[in-house]
Structures are given as structure tokens and as C-alpha cells.
């Protein structure tokens, strides 16, 4: 949920209030610049990206859903603008529409020819799934925060957000693998219950129902 102060600012900006727009810039520009600057060594270029972010916000404001935190929305726009800037610098690849077996440079990756329409989701269904899981996630994490179960949050964050294997998470957090499995079981159980209670099919997030670790990472060579 967006902060009340942000909601008020957005309403005033929608009405064309320049002072409100100036306030919003003052509230968010430094954190956006910090987010961008660590990736772009050029200060002027980083400021350009933030400038494009603010213009992007104004252009997309008619479609902005006020239930979404404004800061998250701004970071989302900023990440797209930053990606564009990195592409222009040749640091980020673009996916080519050429067939996979054609010659391609390292920065023109082959398009995947197996885009299965049978598993495609509509934007609406995707949005419903996402909101459902977000609510369940926030509820579970808040429950653990209130209880001071920080270790459980750390454990699930490593496994789900960073994609670490159970064993690696256990070693890092100095837990037994059995403890990690128990935490994961508790977490997944609550999320599954929430998914079912909202009438969503269980296959929506298959990773929740797997007993094994998430997909193993891709090993990098030393070179």
C-alpha cells in the first residue's frame, strides 16, 4: 500500500500542482540516484537516468495504481531506464528475433523458439496470482517478524529470493538441513493454504510443491 503522504502528493500532481511535483522529486531523487550510480560510473549519465525516470513517472501517472507503493513503482521505472542506458553502453544483451541456430554476437542472444502458447497466462490471471502470493508472503513474513523469527526469514530469503540450495543455506546460517527443511515446509504449507483458499490452482507456483531444492545454479567457469 502506498504511503498516505505519497497518495496525497500523487493526487496533487495529477491535478497539475508544480509544488507537489517538486516535493516528490526532493523526496525520491537521492535514493534513485544511489540505485543507479552504483551501476554507472558516470555521474552525469546516472543523473540522466533519474531524470528519465521522473519523466516516465509523469507519463505513466494516469495508469498508476495507487495501491502500489510509489517507491516500488519508481524503482521499477528506474530499473527499465537503467537497463536501456546499459544497453546503449553495450553492457546488457538484447534478445534477437533471429532463429537460435543463426550466427549471433554475444550481445544478440538467440530467441527461444519454444514459446508455448498453451502455458501462456493472461495479464489478468497473472495479476491475480501475483496479488494472492504477495498477500500470503507479506502475512507470513510479518508473522515471523512479530515473533522475532529472523532466522526463518533469512533461511527462506536465501532459498527463494537468491535461489540457494538447502544445503548451502544451512551451512551459511549454521542450521541443520533438517531445520531448513522444517522452515521451508512451514512456509510452503502456509502459502499453499492461502493459494487454495483463494481458489487458485496449485500448479500456479510449482516450485512450492517440490520437495527438492530449487534448480541448481549454473556453474561459471573460472575464465
Amino acid at each position: 500500500m502506498s504511503q498516505p503522504a505519497d497518495q496525497s502528493l500523487v493526487e496533487r500532481i495529477r491535478a497539475g500542482d508544480g509544488d507537489a511535483w517538486s516535493d516528490l522529486i526532493g523526496r525520491y531523487d537521492s535514493r534513485l540516484l544511489a540505485y543507479v550510480s552504483c551501476r554507472l560510473q558516470n555521474r552525469s549519465l546516472a543523473e540522466d537516468v533519474v531524470q528519465e525516470t521522473f519523466i516516465g513517472l509523469l507519463n505513466s501517472l494516469p495508469n498508476y495504481d495507487g495501491r502500489r507503493p510509489l517507491e516500488n513503482y519508481l524503482f521499477s521505472i528506474c530499473s527499465h531506464k537503467l537497463t536501456d542506458a546499459l544497453r546503449r553502453e553495450g553492457r546488457r544483451p538484447t534478445v534477437s528475433i533471429s532463429p537460435a541456430n543463426s550466427a549471433y554476437s554475444h550481445w544478440q542472444l538467440p530467441a527461444n523458439s519454444e514459446r508455448a502458447s498453451s502455458i501462456a497466462r493472461s495479464d489478468e490471471r497473472r495479476s491475480i496470482e501475483e496479488q494472492s502470493l504477495r498477500d500470503a508472503l507479506v502475512e507470513q513474513l510479518e508473522h515471523w517478524r512479530q515473533r522475532g523469527d529472523w532466522k526463518k526469514i533469512q533461511c527462506l530469503e536465501l532459498i527463494i529470493v537468491r535461489g540457494w540450495a538447502n544445503k548451502r543455506a544451512a551451512e551459511f546460517l549454521q542450521l541443520s538441513q533438517q531445520q531448513v527443511a522444517t522452515y521451508k515446509h512451514e512456509f510452503v504449507g502456509r502459502l499453499c493454504k492461502s493459494v487454495r483458499s483463494q481458489g487458485l490452482p496449485e500448479e500456479v507456483f510449482p516450485e512450492m510443491y517440490l520437495d527438492d531444492d530449487p534448480a541448481e545454479g549454473v556453474e561459471l567457469s573460472d575464465g
Binding site: 507503493p69 516500488n72 508455448a116 504477495r134 529470493v161 537468491r162
Partner: peptide, 27 residues
Amino acid sequence: QLVLVETISRRDTGIHSLGEIWRRHRA
């Protein structure tokens, strides 16, 4: 490179993961 292409393709077909949702909503 192929992992990246597959990841993009999954997104294009509307498939999303729990980790993405956790990160996106900064849970």
C-alpha cells in the same frame, strides 16, 4: 546465455516465480 533466453521466454509467456514476486513487492 541460454539460461537468460529461457528466463526471458518464461516471462514472455506469463510465468512468474515466487522469488520474483517476493523481490518485486519487497516483501
